[in-house]
Computed example of a mutant assay.
Amino acid sequence: MRALRMWIGSTIAAAAAMVSCNAALAHVTVQPADAPADSYAHLVFTVPHGCSGSATTALRIKLPEGILSAKPQMKPGWNVEIKSRKLEAPVQGPHGKSITDVVDEVAWRGGPLPDNLYDTFGLIVRLPDKAGQDLHFPVVQECEQGVERWIEIPSAGQGSEKLRAPAPVVRLKTKTH
């Protein structure tokens, strides 16, 4: 009887883990979930599925304020578009260079990425010096039929777990030397 209770308990725990894992994989995510402020980071955006069974044909990522440089990963079968925006005033860059324009949005178009497969899309970015801040990266996923907008940003004090289509987020942590 004890063995049966242990088996049932472990089965329930495994099922709960699978459900929470599936919920986490239900939307576009970014890794790492946290990164040192005022540093370069390799961000990896994971697209786990298409749009209601339809293959993904484009992924557009809007970069948050404070990112001074971004370099997207080249992917075979995909074209990369980089949209820039002019800063209101020049800022000092990491190597003493004056920066007047920054990457505003990166879009990959091509594929297609079938619904039953996943892929990752990478960006190397310079993160701002704002430890404790969350950086949200709104993502629009275009498919052969349909679109998914992973653009919801929680309001102050609200957790992203209550959002239907949360934007991927990176938490800036204190830089350690």
Rank of each mutant, 00 (worst) to 15 (best):
T56F: 02
T56C: 06
T56N: 08
T57Y: 01
A58E: 06
A58F: 02
A58R: 11
R60G: 08
K62F: 00
K62S: 12
K62V: 00
L63D: 06
L63G: 10
L63K: 07
L63C: 09
P64Q: 05
E65H: 13
E65N: 15
E65Q: 14
G66P: 05
G66S: 09
I67R: 07
I67G: 08
L68T: 14
S69Y: 09
S69R: 11
A70G: 11
A70Y: 02
A70M: 08
A70D: 10
K71C: 00
K71H: 12
K71D: 12
P72H: 09
Q73V: 02
M74H: 14
M74S: 15
K75T: 07
K75W: 02
K75E: 10
K75I: 14
K75P: 01
G77A: 08
W78Y: 13
W78L: 02
N79M: 13
V80F: 06
V80Q: 02
V80P: 04
E81W: 09
E81G: 11
I82D: 11
K83M: 11
K83N: 12
S84A: 07
S84V: 02
R85Q: 15
R85C: 07
R85H: 10
R85I: 09
K86P: 00
K86I: 04
L87T: 03
L87H: 03
E88Q: 14
E88I: 05
A89F: 12
A89K: 15
P90I: 06
P90V: 05
P90L: 04
P90R: 11
P90N: 09
V91A: 10
Q92T: 15
Q92M: 14
Q92N: 12
G93R: 03
G93I: 01
P94W: 10
H95S: 11
G96E: 08
G96P: 06
K97W: 00
K97T: 13
S98Q: 14
S98T: 11
T100K: 12
D101K: 14
D101A: 08
V102R: 13
V103H: 12
V103Y: 08
D104S: 15
D104Q: 15
D104A: 15
E105F: 00
V106S: 05
V106Y: 03
V106K: 08
A107F: 00
A107V: 06
W108K: 03
W108H: 02
W108V: 02
R109I: 07
R109H: 10
G110L: 00
G110P: 07
G110I: 00
G110W: 06
P112C: 04
P112K: 11
P112W: 01
P112Y: 00
P112S: 14
L113S: 05
L113D: 01
P114T: 03
P114W: 04
P114E: 01
P114Y: 04
P114S: 12
D115R: 09
D115K: 08
D115S: 13
D115I: 01
N116Q: 13
N116P: 01
L117H: 13
L117A: 14
L117Y: 14
L117Q: 15
Y118N: 14
Y118H: 14
Y118W: 14
D119F: 06
G122V: 03
G122A: 14
G122Q: 13
G122C: 05
L123Y: 05
L123R: 03
L123C: 06
I124F: 05
R126N: 12
R126T: 01
L127M: 11
L127N: 10
L127K: 08
P128F: 01
P128W: 05
P128I: 03
D129P: 01
K130M: 01
K130L: 03
A131Y: 07
A131H: 10
A131P: 15
